[in-house]
């Protein structure tokens, strides 16, 4: 038991040592996850809202299970596919993206996208169909309609973003594969935790874990604030 306490004490000490390398890891984590979340929202919210507003989704029996399966995509599988795409022998090898933050953003976007689409879709479908009818009769265009419904279902959309954020910031399989965990270039919090645990530096690994949790907490605090704001 006392070992756990000791590890925890060391972790807290490390947190307050403000090591520049530690903060560069934190900055990269936020950059990669932030961009991935942004792209996933940019693509996913319109798709989710569009599908949700359709009276009958085309091929719903096939499309919806596909989206719901996508919501549980194993990150390592996504990582593997992105790796094969970007590898020298892969179709996009010429981009030179493998082992760069761009590859990590691409992989995390793919992981986050089905979550954003699926949860937005569910939230939009849960709104009152009478509202859609009312808005249409008031002469709203499709875009105006979607925008109003999305505002109405803000709670559900924020839940979609929170779920996507949580799944990608804590994800290690894909970023390890496509990023390579290169010190000073592609090392993020989760890959650093794996590395330090393997090295037997449990205190440092735990400190990184505490920072990761802290980041997630602060971000969710902000998102929760958005949800409540009128």
């Amino acid at each position: 038991m006392h070992i756990l306490v000791q590890v925890f004490q060391n972790a807290v000490q490390l947190l307050f040592s403000f090591d520049p390398e530690l903060w560069s890891i934190v900055a990269l984590t936020l950059r990669v996850t932030g961009f991935a979340l942004f792209f996933a929202m940019l693509i996913g919210i319109p798709i989710g809202a569009g599908l949700g507003l359709m009276g009958r989704i085309p091929a719903a029996g096939c499309l919806l299970p596909l989206i719901y399966t996508g919501m549980g995509l194993p990150p390592v599988v996504v990582g593997l596919c992105v790796y094969l795409l970007l590898s020298n022998q892969g179709p996009l090898g010429d981009w030179g993206w493998l082992f760069t933050p761009s590859a990590m953003i691409l992989a995390q976007t793919v992981i986050a996208l089905p979550l954003v689409v699926g949860l937005t879709l569910t939230a939009v479908r849960a709104t009152d169909p009478m509202l859609h009818l009312q808005l249409r009769s008031l002469g709203a265009t499709r875009v105006q309609l979607a925008w109003t419904v999305l505002r109405e279902t803000r709670l559900g959309v924020v839940a979609a973003i929170v779920a996507a954020f949580g799944s990608i910031i804590s994800e290690v399989g894909a970023v390890m594969l496509v990023g390579g965990n290169i010190q000073g270039e592609t090392r993020v919090l989760t890959t650093a935790i794996v590395l330090e645990t393997r090295r037997g530096n449990f205190a440092l690994a735990l400190a990184l874990g505490i920072i990761l949790l802290g980041l997630a907490f602060v971000t969710n605090l902000v998102l929760y604030g958005l949800q409540r704001r009128d």
């Binding site: 965990n181 290169i182 010190q183 000073g184 270039e185 890959t191 590395l195």
Partner: peptide, 9 residues
Amino acid sequence: KSLGQGMGD
């Protein structure tokens, strides 16, 4: 490049 990964990786 300091990778922090196994030999295979």
